[in-house]
């Protein structure tokens, strides 16, 4: 269970990006966070594994408070949080297998990492997961030879290799075409069920969010102003979340995004 309490994040001396935010996520649900650009979605996600250092508040994952950890403990804690990125963030010049195994870097010895002699069970799991998402045949290809959807699958497998207790996805479909983006969304939803894994997704595409999520959180100016089942999200609340954007425009945005 992930529990975020009174989270505040302030860059420099400006107004805080996250204002006293409270959120808890449990079980195998797929939760989407929606909100216009600059609402603080990405900052919130990055605060969870402290890629962004929170200013104050607490973040607790299954009993561990992440905000108080020292560098070494933080590395151990980060292994428990998988992350998927908008631009995939693969190491282009490494093979798919090396990218996938880099998800285990927090576990394996430095020697194994440098010589690429990965433990047998890691290799087995890598092939299982790659087969599950349909990229096993590319194991020895270089990551930059793959298409966008395939690259994001590598990103997902890399995150799952960590055997995470929670999966964070920062706009995982924003760099993909509509069809591949639906494939990735349904993959994430199915994986959440199969692996008993809570998944938090930042997403711009409201239509997709409503279709695939169990729960939707709407953010505006660093605050959560909506938190319910997708069905409960109506036009009035959308207007509030995306205030400033007329509803017709927004529907178009949702359709093309």
């Amino acid at each position: 269970m992930l529990e975020i309490k009174n989270l505040v994040k302030r860059y420099g001396k400006g107004a805080p990006v996250l204002k006293d935010l409270n959120l808890s996520v449990e079980g195998e649900q797929l939760m989407s966070i929606i909100g216009s650009s600059g609402a603080g979605k990405s900052t919130l996600l990055r605060c969870v594994n402290r890629l962004v250092e929170p200013t104050s508040g607490s973040i607790t994952l299954n009993g561990t408070d992440f905000t108080t950890l020292g560098p070494k403990e933080l590395r151990r804690a980060r292994r428990r949080v998988g992350m998927v990125f908008q631009s995939f963030n693969l190491v282009d010049r490494l093979s798919v297998m090396e990218n996938v195994q880099s998800g285990r870097l927090g576990y394996i010895s430095t020697w194994a990492a440098v010589t690429r002699r990965y433990p047998a069970e890691d290799i087995e799991r890598a092939f299982e997961l790659m087969e599950r998402v349909g990229i096993a045949q590319y194991a020895d290809k270089r990551a930059d030879e793959l298409s966008g959807g395939e690259r994001q699958r590598v990103g997902v497998v890399r995150a799952l290799m960590q055997r995470p207790e929670i999966l964070l996805a920062d706009e995982p479909t924003a760099s993909l075409d509509p069809k591949t983006s639906e494939q990735i969304m349904s993959l994430l939803r199915d994986l959440a069920r199969e692996l008993n894994l809570p998944v938090i997704i930042n997403i711009h595409n409201v239509t997709e969010a409503k279709e695939y999520s169990d729960r939707i959180v709407g953010m505006r100016y660093g605050r959560i102003i909506f938190d319910d089942k997708p069905a409960a999200l109506d036009a009035a609340q959308m207007d509030e979340i995306y205030a400033g954007t007329p509803s017709e425009d927004r529907q178009e945005m949702g359709a093309i995004a």
Partner: peptide, 10 residues
């Protein structure tokens, strides 16, 4: 059976 051995192609 899934593969349990993998070597970086030299």
């Amino acid at each position: 059976t899934t593969q349990t051995v993998w070597r970086k192609p030299p």
